[in-house]
Design a protein around this nucleic acid. Structure first.
Lengths: 207, 207
DNA sequence: ATTATCTATAGATCTATAGATAATGC
DNA sequence: ATTATCTATAGATCTATAGATAATGC
């Protein structure tokens, strides 16, 4: 029953980390406080010394899910501009991500539930969406900032929609087709000069 | 306490219709049997003469949501090929649809929850996704069937993703920007010959 | 006779709180 | 002295069932 300050911080992070994973797997309403605490090796009673309410945990868990995804995106972004967007797309639209929502993107796992959540969670989401659009825009080859932002919004939407649909269907072939097809389209955009349909000035893509 | 066969059928449809709307609004776990029955002017006890389980209602309600959306899509599809895809896109990516999930598309309202649902619901979803892709493909101007299907998958994914994100963010300007930007991109594809980036052979779009 | 619906409730589960216990930290 | 955690439980809610009631339909 130890409780140093450092220990409490570690415990807090562990609770949030578990909730973040399980919420993505089972939905924001699909996993209870008792289960989270049990998985963290604790009991229900201690929960409210860490959080004022369940919604508090939801907000922190969603934020943590964004952070985890961001670290993976940053890793994918360490490279040349065009090739890394292709990498990012591939690291998103694949079967491993589809089959492991707990460690994946929070948007395709939770977007409709976030839309029904409290203001704080949705404010965090606004910021994360802004960041992700910004990141994708910088990875796009076009020079025109406005065009890059516009294309980034399309890319981001298509990524999230494709994964949402690929997970929702039971037909494995259809699910794969969605992932592959959208991936091909988006990578084509990523390797092409934006803002005009004239050129096919390829980016530094090797394949 | 009347109960003719015709009456029972009407009651059944009413229950499904209410559930279909409320599930889209509050999530598959966000609305209880007692509430559905109460809104239908009935009490809990009668529920299980209509459905074997709650999952039965979920499956029927999701199916009903697909049907309702299909009718609206069919209405939008009554016109020339290219102009009606632009119409379809506009009828999807707007603020009225964003703010009224209960009468809107079931994918952007429920996709992650459907992914966690039973096999039957996901099988229904596969069929609906196939139909919607097929519909969009026939509305695309390109002659090449494979290209049209590929483009339809991208369009469908971007529609669902854009609406999911537009609903999840609290920032109204960002939300609108997502809807407008993705709409512009998709309508540009819809009015352009697919399968090549050479031409800009416009479709019969009037604007 | 059958059955659609009602009232009532069992049993499970979930959030939140109360009070006890045992460790930290001044 | 403070507090992180524990045990125990109140109170709410949700699915599903049991048995009664009142209408249909043979």
């Amino acid at each position: 029953m130890g409780h140093s300050k450092a220990q409490k911080t570690r415990t807090h992070k562990r609770i949030v980390s578990i909730a973040s994973k399980r919420f993505r797997e089972k939905g924001l309403a699909g996993f209870g406080i008792a289960e989270v605490m049990k998985e963290a090796g604790l009991t229900v009673g201690g929960f409210y010394k860490h959080f004022d309410s369940r919604d508090d945990l939801v907000a922190e868990a969603v934020s943590s899910a964004f952070g985890g995804w961001k670290r993976r995106v940053d890793a994918a972004a360490s490279g040349g501009p065009s090739i890394s967007l292709a990498k990012l797309i591939d690291s998103y639209l694949n079967e491993a991500h589809r089959d492991n929502p707990g460690t994946g993107c929070a948007f395709c796992a939770l977007a409709p539930e976030i839309a029904r959540s409290d203001k704080r969670t949705r404010a965090l989401t606004s910021e994360q969406v802004r960041n992700d659009i910004q990141l994708i825009a910088t990875l796009l080859p076009g020079e025109d900032k406005r065009t890059a932002r516009s294309q980034a919004i399309l890319t981001f939407s298509a990524l999230v929609g494709a994964m949402s649909l690929a997970r929702a269907v039971s037909d494995e072939a259809l699910s794969r087709e969605i992932l592959e097809t959208v991936g091909e389209h988006l990578k084509r955009f990523a390797s092409k000069q934006q803002g005009s349909n004239r050129g096919k000035k390829a980016g530094p893509l090797s394949d």
